[in-house]
Design a protein around this nucleic acid. Sequence first.
DNA 1: ACCTATGTTCGACATCCGTCGAACTACCTC
DNA 2: GAGGTAGTTCGACGGATGTCGAACATAGGT
Lengths: 110, 110
Amino acid sequence: MSNIGYAGHMELHEPELREVPVTNVLAALADDVRLQIVRALAGGGEYACGTFEFGVSKATRSHHLKVLREAGLTRTRVAGTSRYVRLRREELERLYPGLLDAVLAAPARA
Amino acid sequence: MSNIGYAGHMELHEPELREVPVTNVLAALADDVRLQIVRALAGGGEYACGTFEFGVSKATRSHHLKVLREAGLTRTRVAGTSRYVRLRREELERLYPGLLDAVLAAPARA
DNA sequence: ACCTATGTTCGACATCCGTCGAACTACCTC
DNA sequence: GAGGTAGTTCGACGGATGTCGAACATAGGT
């Protein structure tokens, strides 16, 4: 009866990019795990969350994907029990031209 | 006799940009106060620390300038009791082409 | 010498952030 | 419907971070 307290079938929060402060976008990119995810997505494909095995638990992975989504960097499509994530490249390029390329061009290991 | 415990005349720590992880650079930019400082420096001039009155105490301002310096974003010249800060634009452009411009082009207020 | 102006450093504090295991929801397949 | 699979959410934890006032160091001026 009560679906209060669970958001499983609610729409995912995917803000308009222009409504996200730049500092949030930068903060989202300023983490090693998240940057690895972004790199993996940079090719353009769509990947299930489970794809990103970067040495963290699935709880942590879920957390990072949420941060990326709420920073306006990714979009998520729900399909069955899986969620497919992709980069919002064009929007990002329109609002912050050159930003993503500049970040991705940086060497992976400092 | 003892100059232990104070670093007033020591050289400021200004790392090679290539030795700073990208995530550190991004994290340094992912703060409102620091981004305001970077914007103020973007014109190319050299400014004394006290120039940056952005509603924080001078202790906090000093902290942020240290973060920027240690992220490789700024260089500091000591002159008398003042310290003059400037952006390391060319180096930044060489290592992360387009990054700074992309960030600066973003609207100041979210 | 004193006083002032400019910054830095030192605790201290509150908050945020990354991380995890455990419990949970939702869906798919037998 | 029982079980398995994919993810999310919930506390909890430790460590990092932003903030401040106070104390300090240094240089310059009177």
